[in-house]
Design a protein around this nucleic acid. Structure first.
Lengths: 256, 256
DNA sequence: CATATAACGTTGTCAGACAGTGTGACATTC
DNA sequence: GAATGTCACACTGTCTGACAACGTTATATG
C-alpha cells in the first residue's frame, strides 16, 4: 500500500516517475555485453554455463536466456553441441561491420540535418575525444572514438538507430580485439572527426557524408593492414582499463 | 564417425555440403517470426508460455529462450510480470522504422554501386512486384514490395545488412498490422520502384538515394494518414493468405 | 602411429516446483 | 454508486534437479 502524503492536500500530486523494473535477463545480458566491450571476455572465449551462472549468481536457464539476446545481437555465437562463444571476427567481417556503421551513422547525419537536431552532444563528445588523444592511451582513445560516434547517432533522435549503434559499437570493439596484433588506434583521427562535427553542425549533408565515408574507410583499412598509413602515428596497447560506465551499453528498456 | 566412400578411390571427393544443424531455439524463433510476419500472431497479442510451448511441442524453457531472440529483435515486447507480447507499433514508430530502413537500403545502394554488384535479383523482384500489383491483393503486394526491398539489400552482399533488413521487414509489417484501419497498400508504388531499380542498375548513386528517400517518405506518410494521396488508388484488405516461404525470414545460421 | 575405446565434462532439453505478480469478480464502505 | 478492500485464480519469473546426447581428452590396443 502506497500512501502519498501531500501538504496542502489539495495541491498537485508530486511528480512520480514510472517505476522501471529491469528484468533479470536484461541485467545479465548487460553484464556480459559490457564484459565483452571492456575486454574482460575475449573473442573466441567459450562460455561455461554452469560456471558463468554461478559467477553471476543466477540459474543456468536465466543465463541461457540472456545468451540468446547476445547471440541475436551477433555478439556471441552458438555452435551446436559446443555451446556459446564470444564472437571472433574475421577479416571478412571488417568491411561488413563498417558497412553497417556507415549505414547507421549516415542516416543519423541525414536525420540531424533534416530535422535540425541539436548537435550539443556531438561537440561535447568531440572535446572528450581531444582530451583522450592527449592522454595517449589506446583504449581510452578507442572508447572516446566510439562514444563520439554514438553521440552522433543519439543526436538523430531515433531510438532504433541508437540501439543498433550500441550493438555496432560492440562489433567494432570485437574487430580490434579479434586482431592478434592487439588493440591499436590512430592518432590522426581527430582532424576528420572535427571536420565531421563541423559539417554536421553547418548542416552540410553531402560534405558530412563524404567525410563520414572517409572515416569509415580509413578505420576499415587500418584493421585490414595496420602498416597502411605509414606516416600516421599509432598507439598500440594489449590491455588497459576500460573506462566504460556500467550503464552505458544498456539497451533500451524492453517494456512498453 | 564419418566414412566417405568414393569410387574410384583416387577420384575427387563427392561434393558434400557442410551439415547444418539449426538449433531448436532457431526453429522456434523462426516459427514465431513467420507467424507474426504472416499475420497469424497479431500485434499486442500476448504469448501464453505454457500453451504456446505445448503447441510447438517444446518445453517452456526452450520457448522462453526463443522469445528472448524476438525481444532483442524488437518484434516482441516484454512487460515485467505480464509476460511477452507481439510488439504493437505506435504512430511514433512509423518514422523510426522507416529511418532504419532508409539507413539500410541507402547503404545497400551505395555498396552495390561501389562494388559493381549484380542487380539481377533486383530486376527479378521488380517483375514479381509488377505481377503482384496486377493481382490486386493487398497482402500479396505487400509481400512483393518487401521482397523487392530485401532483394536490394541482399544484392549488396553484406550479411549484416541483410539480417537487419529481415528484421526491419517484420517491423514494417507490424506497422501495417498495428493500424486498426487494416492492411492497405498503394498501387502506384511500381513507378518509383522501377525508377529505383533503373537508377541502381545505371550506377547513379545520388539519383538512387533520392528516389529511395522519396519511397520511404511516401510509405511513412501513407501510414500516418492513409487519406494523404487522394488520387492514389489503394488496395485495402483486412486479411489474406500470406505467401511467405517458410524459410524466408530465417536469420543467418548462428553457428560459425 | 593410427585407430579404437573408455571416461569425463558439457550442452540441450525437459519436468516439476513455488513465490511473486497481475487480473477480474465480488463484497464493503462512505 | 464510485471508490476501496478482499479473495481466488492464472500466469510469469526463477530455481533445482535430472538425464540423454554430444564433444573432447586420455588411455589402451593393434
Amino acid at each position: 500500500m502506497i500512501v502519498i502524503v501531500t501538504n496542502p492536500p489539495t495541491s498537485e500530486l508530486p511528480v512520480l516517475r514510472r517505476v522501471v523494473r529491469s528484468s533479470t535477463i536484461d541485467l545479465i545480458a548487460d553484464q556480459l555485453r559490457n564484459a565483452i566491450y571492456s575486454g574482460s571476455l575475449e573473442p573466441g572465449q567459450s562460455i561455461n554455463e554452469v560456471r558463468t551462472a554461478e559467477l553471476l549468481v543466477v540459474s543456468r536457464p536465466s543465463l541461457r536466456e540472456a545468451l540468446q539476446r547476445l547471440i541475436s545481437e551477433g555478439v556471441m555465437t552458438h555452435a551446436p553441441g559446443r555451446g556459446v562463444h564470444v564472437s571472433r571476427m574475421r577479416a571478412s567481417d571488417i568491411d561488413d561491420v563498417y558497412a553497417v556503421r556507415e549505414a547507421i551513422e549516415s542516416q543519423a547525419v541525414r536525420l540531424i540535418i533534416r530535422h535540425g537536431r541539436s548537435v550539443h552532444r556531438i561537440s561535447t563528445a568531440l572535446t572528450e575525444l581531444e582530451r583522450a588523444i592527449e592522454d595517449n592511451v589506446a583504449r581510452t582513445i578507442g572508447d572516446a572514438d566510439l562514444t563520439f560516434h554514438h553521440a552522433l547517432v543519439a543526436s538523430s533522435g531515433s531510438v532504433r538507430l541508437s540501439d543498433l549503434m550500441k550493438v555496432s559499437m560492440v562489433h567494432t570493439r570485437l574487430l580490434s580485439l579479434s586482431d592478434e596484433r592487439g588493440y591499436e588506434v590512430r592518432c590522426d583521427l581527430i582532424d576528420s572527426h572535427r571536420e565531421l562535427a563541423e559539417a554536421v553542425a553547418a548542416g552540410e549533408e553531402s560534405r558530412s557524408l563524404t567525410v563520414l565515408a572517409r572515416i569509415m574507410a580509413e578505420a576499415a583499412s587500418r584493421l585490414h593492414d595496420p602498416e597502411d598509413g605509414l606516416e600516421a602515428r599509432v598507439v598500440r596497447g594489449r590491455e588497459g582499463e576500460a573506462s566504460v560506465d556500467d550503464q552505458w551499453l544498456r539497451l533500451r528498456e524492453s517494456s512498453q
